[in-house]
């Protein structure tokens, strides 16, 4: 089994564990962790798409030559992963704020059905 297969399986396992975490409970904190695992799995897979055997980080030095095969990994997926991590940070922070609101309102983090009749504030 080569490194690509191992990393690909690890990425999909992370995604799968996250998916299982979502199905197996209604705790908000569990959901936040599960989504975090899924996003990490996707990011690992994304990095893998730019990987080439024996290639270096895409930094051009004086020794760089355009002749012959490119000695670099594909830099695009790395850039995409950076963006994805920032988006993940934003959504996780927002979710934690919502979890705090939930805890203050219900005294727990069990996200069941919304209550029936309620007073609505605009």
């Amino acid at each position: 089994m080569n490194i690509v297969t191992i990393v690909a399986i690890s990425a999909l396992l992370l995604f799968g564990i996250g998916l299982y975490g979502l199905w197996s409970g209604r705790n908000v904190l569990r959901w936040i962790l599960a989504v975090g695992l899924m996003e990490t799995g996707v990011n690992v897979f994304l990095v893998l798409t730019g990987w080439r055997p024996g290639a270096a980080a895409p930094i051009v030095t004086e020794a760089f030559s355009t002749s012959g095969p490119l000695p670099f990994i594909d830099p695009v997926p790395s850039a995409l992963v950076l963006t994805s991590i920032v988006i993940g940070l934003g959504t996780t922070t927002l979710a934690l704020a919502l979890a705090v609101l939930h805890g203050q309102e219900h005294g727990n983090l069990d996200c069941g059905d919304d209550p029936g009749t309620l007073e609505v504030l605009e």
Partner: peptide, 20 residues
Amino acid sequence: QTGSPRGVIRYWLFSSVSGA
């Protein structure tokens, strides 16, 4: 601003999973 945020937590959950 006040009251249960359960609906919006579900919104976050669905959008995050679909985003992933």
